[in-house]
């Protein structure tokens, strides 16, 4: 019998769902094993009845629920709570669901400041009061990871998560296992660049010039990005972005890591650890621009990002 699946995106971008499709050809072998009882992206099941006449949200019973995106408004929170009630195993898919993700950068401001900008201070917008209607759910005070609202059984981080891990976690569930997690390794542990444990020194360079490398040669002939003087979050970021066998994806593009898989261990503080890593190769870590937002780009839920107290009047 097929496994009953409920899938939905909350405060998300659809990238996680595209990553599911990026399983590629093997997808056709997996599909018959799954019965999608709700999936906004692909299946026409409705929350309020197929004729739109029910008053309470109906989430089907499911063996496994897969939820991408964080929680940003009252309706998402309600939906997630309903999904939790109906699901055997709940999978948080992607860094928004696991840590809040990029949209949790908004946690650096109060809700009213964000709305004031969006509806009254955008260049092309006619200033207007914030939308207020039963059909536009009010924001929750912060953008949250799923486990700030309900119990999560399996977390697949990544922005996006690699299809290899989606398949592996799903396979674990199909085999009746209630848990799965990525091994605790850093991006550097899977990165082939040359490391000499020292850099040119001085301030951290901005991303205004490209790395030094010979394009005809592999990454194993390129010097470590931190040692070239730029910020790369590899030392404090969980490995896995390129799946089971590949080398880290941003490094493949000859660009630095920005931490999209989140911290290596639960509870780690990447900002502190990264400042240490920069210092250890001789860079002036304090020179790094915009470091709070930069180092918490994907992990602003769980109270990691908050509005700063108002500055005292000068």
């Amino acid at each position: 019998m097929a496994v009953r699946v409920v899938e939905d995106w909350l405060n998300a971008c659809s990238g996680c769902e595209i990553s599911i499709l990026n399983i590629g050809d093997p997808l056709l072998d997996i599909l018959p094993l799954l019965e999608f009882r709700h999936m906004t992206a692909l299946v026409d099941h409705k929350f309020f009845g197929q004729l739109g006449d029910k008053t309470a949200m109906e989430i089907p019973e499911a063996d496994v629920a897969i939820v991408s995106g964080g929680v940003r408004n009252a309706e998402m929170k309600h939906e997630l709570e309903e999904i939790r009630k109906k699901a055997g195993v709940l999978i948080a898919l992607g860094s928004c669901a696991v840590y809040g993700g990029v949209p949790a950068q908004a946690n650096m401001w109060k809700t009213e400041e964000v709305f004031d900008k969006v509806f009254r201070h955008c260049a092309s917008t006619e200033p207007h009061a914030d939308p207020k209607d039963p059909n536009v759910p009010p924001w929750t005070p912060t953008c949250m990871a799923l486990d700030e609202v309900v119990k999560v059984d399996i977390a697949i981080p990544g922005c996006p998560p690699h299809p290899d891990w989606i398949v592996e976690a799903l396979t674990a569930v199909l085999e009746g296992k209630g848990s799965w997690s990525l091994p605790e390794r850093s991006v550097c542990d899977t990165c082939p660049v040359i490391r000499e444990k020292k850099s040119v020194g001085g301030p951290v360079k901005r991303w205004l010039t490209n790395l030094e490398f010979n394009p005809e040669e592999g990454l194993d002939k390129m010097r470590c990005i931190n040692e070239q003087g730029f910020l790369c979050m590899g030392p404090v970021t969980l490995a896995g972005c390129a799946g089971k066998t590949g080398v880290p994806r941003c490094i493949q593009a000859r660009t630095p890591c920005r931490g999209c898989f989140g911290p290596i261990r639960k509870g780690a503080n990447p900002m502190v650890d990264m400042m240490g890593a920069l210092t250890s190769v001789g860079l002036d870590a304090k020179s790094l621009l915009d470091r709070r937002a930069m180092m918490n780009r994907y992990i602003g839920g769980h109270g990691m990002l908050r509005p700063l107290p108002a500055r005292p009047a000068r």
Binding site: N11, R72, P103, K117, V118, D133, W139
Partner: peptide
Amino acid sequence: FYVQTLRGFEKFCEGRPAEE
């Protein structure tokens, strides 16, 4: 036709280095 979500990119990009 209601669109029910808002993320606030126009706000939280303020303060970021342009090259990011």
